[in-house]
C-alpha cells in the first residue's frame, strides 16, 4: 500500500457481500454455493439462483482461472487516468462462475492478452479495510 490517495471507486459491502470482502481483505477468494443443489455462484446472494434454496455456504476457490473476454479502455474512468489504456476483463473461475477484474503483471495489449490464458488471483490492498481481487498471468502453465 502506498501513501497516495486512492481515487478509484471503492466497493461498499452489503449484508450479502460482507463475507466476500472480509475474506478478500485477508487475501482469500471465497464464493458461495448451494448446499442443496451444490452449484456454485457469484455475485453473493441470500438464496441460490438455481433452486432458490436458502441453504448457502461459502467456500474458498482455487484462485485459478482463465481469460474469458475483455476490452481495453482508452477513455479512462475517473481515477484510472494513469492506467490508461487498461483492460476490463472477464475471468472464468476454475469453479464455474465468472467475475469482472483487471489484469496485472503484464502490459494490457491485444497481443499480450490471449483468450483462455491461465490466470491466478492476486490481492491489491487499497485501504486498511478494503482489498480488491485482481488477476495476473499464471506463468506456471505454458499457454499460447
Amino acid at each position: 500500500m502506498t501513501d497516495k490517495i486512492y481515487r478509484k471507486p471503492i466497493p461498499i459491502p452489503t449484508p450479502e457481500s460482507d463475507f466476500f470482502w472480509a475474506k478478500v481483505s485477508q487475501h482469500e477468494l471465497w464464493i458461495q454455493r448451494c448446499v442443496d443443489c451444490l452449484k456454485p455462484f457469484f455475485y453473493p446472494r441470500m438464496v441460490c439462483p438455481h433452486c432458490l434454496s436458502d441453504k448457502i455456504e461459502w467456500f474458498e476457490v482455487s484462485g485459478r482461472g482463465s481469460l474469458y473476454s475483455y476490452m481495453i479502455n482508452h477513455r479512462p474512468a475517473p481515477g484510472f487516468e494513469e492506467d490508461s489504456p487498461y483492460a476490463i476483463a472477464i475471468v472464468q473461475l476454475e469453479e464455474g462462475p465468472r467475475m469482472m477484474s483487471n489484469i496485472v503483471g503484464i502490459e494490457n495489449t491485444p497481443e499480450n492478452l490471449i483468450l483462455d490464458m491461465p490466470l491466478r488471483v492476486v490481492f491489491e490492498d487499497i485501504t486498511p479495510a478494503i482489498t480488491i481481487p485482481k488477476w495476473r498471468p499464471d506463468e506456471t502453465i505454458k499457454y499460447g
Binding site: 478509484k8 471507486p9 471503492i10 466497493p11 461498499i12 459491502p13 452489503t14 457481500s17 470482502w21 455475485y43 474469458y68 473476454s69 475483455y70 476490452m71 479502455n73 477513455r75 479512462p76 474512468a77 475517473p78 481515477g79 484510472f80 492506467d83 487498461y86 476490463i88 476483463a89 472477464i90 467475475m99 469482472m100 477484474s101 483487471n102 483468450l115 480488491i132
Partner: peptide, 29 residues
C-alpha cells in the same frame, strides 16, 4: 460509482465508465 449496488461493488471498481466499457465485453469471446 461509489455505491453498494452489485454493479458498484463488482464492476465499477475495475474502471468501467459507461456503456462503451461494458456493452462489448463479450465480443472478443
Amino acid at each position: 460509482m461509489k455505491d453498494s449496488s452489485f454493479p458498484g461493488q463488482f464492476e465499477s471498481i475495475y474502471g468501467v465508465y459507461g456503456p462503451t466499457t461494458q456493452f462489448g465485453l463479450g465480443v472478443l469471446r
